[in-house]
């Protein structure tokens, strides 16, 4: 497998751990600096963070409903973390931590477990009725089908982000070995659009999966 040159690599621990820690340090320091000096008329950085939080609030209210405000910290930090870690790949010498399946699978598993827990807590015992299908005669077959389609959600959720970011990184690496001049740099900065797009899609799908397990059976029939 081809490999990009990496600036910081501590031997013994995987590269994406260091990259995740770098992303966390960047986000925490930016949040600390911005939070220390909040203004009424926001500057560039503050308005960017405010945009993310206001947008998340809007989507949660529109898609989930009134009980959606509870998920604001989780979903907004998902958006900020994924966006920063996608954008870290555009700096030469670093790679995105989301270009490994471990990071994205962790994020998708959090959404999966949380959505089913909250659905079970809201509906109680009636939540199991969602897995039985429409006809009670076909229940033994339908339960396998429903469990499979429920299990395929976190996989596709994780795989989409991973595959897109990994393909970007891999394309730049291959181009770097084929013709190491201007072209890889151009391709590297073409990816910024894809980075924003994939972060947005992951974030929206997380909200939608939570909303799907929260909504009741009667709403689906209408």
């Amino acid at each position: 497998m081809l490999k990009v040159p990496i600036l910081i690599s501590i031997p013994g621990i995987p590269i994406y751990w260091t990259m995740t820690i770098i992303v966390m340090a960047v986000i925490l320091s930016v949040a600390f600096i911005v939070g220390k000096s909040m203004k009424v008329v926001p500057g560039h950085v503050q308005s960017f963070f405010e945009l993310i939080i206001v947008m998340t609030e809007y989507f949660l209210k529109e898609i989930i409903g009134d009980e959606g405000e509870m998920y604001l910290p989780l979903i907004a930090s998902f958006a900020i973390f994924i966006l920063f870690s996608n954008l870290l790949g555009s700096i030469p010498g670093f790679t995105s931590p989301t270009a490994t399946i471990d990071t994205t699978a962790t994020l998708a598993l959090i959404v999966f477990v949380l959505s089913h827990l909250m659905g079970a807590r809201k509906h109680g015992f009636k939540y199991l009725k969602k897995f039985l299908g429409p006809l009670i005669v076909l229940a033994p077959i339908m339960i396998i089908i429903e469990v499979m389609s429920a299990l395929s959600r976190p996989f596709s959720h994780a795989l989409r982000l991973f595959a897109n970011i990994f393909a970007e990184e891999f394309m730049v690496t291959v181009l770097l070995f084929l013709l190491p001049w201007v072209v890889p740099a151009i391709m590297m900065y073409m990816q910024i659009f894809t980075d924003f797009m994939q972060a947005f899609v992951f974030y929206l799908l997380a909200i939608i999966y939570i909303a799907l397990s929260l909504e009741s059976e009667e709403m689906e029939e209408v």
């Binding site: 898609i63 499979m148 299990l151 395929s152 596709s156 795989l159 899609v201 799908l205 939608i208 909303a211």
Partner: peptide, 19 residues
């Protein structure tokens, strides 16, 4: 909501058969 949900259907088919 509809667009995001519909666009993940293609992956779902293949992943559920892999599962």
């Amino acid at each position: 909501k509809q667009i995001t949900r519909m666009s993940s259907l293609g992956l779902n088919v293949i992943i559920s058969s892999l599962i």
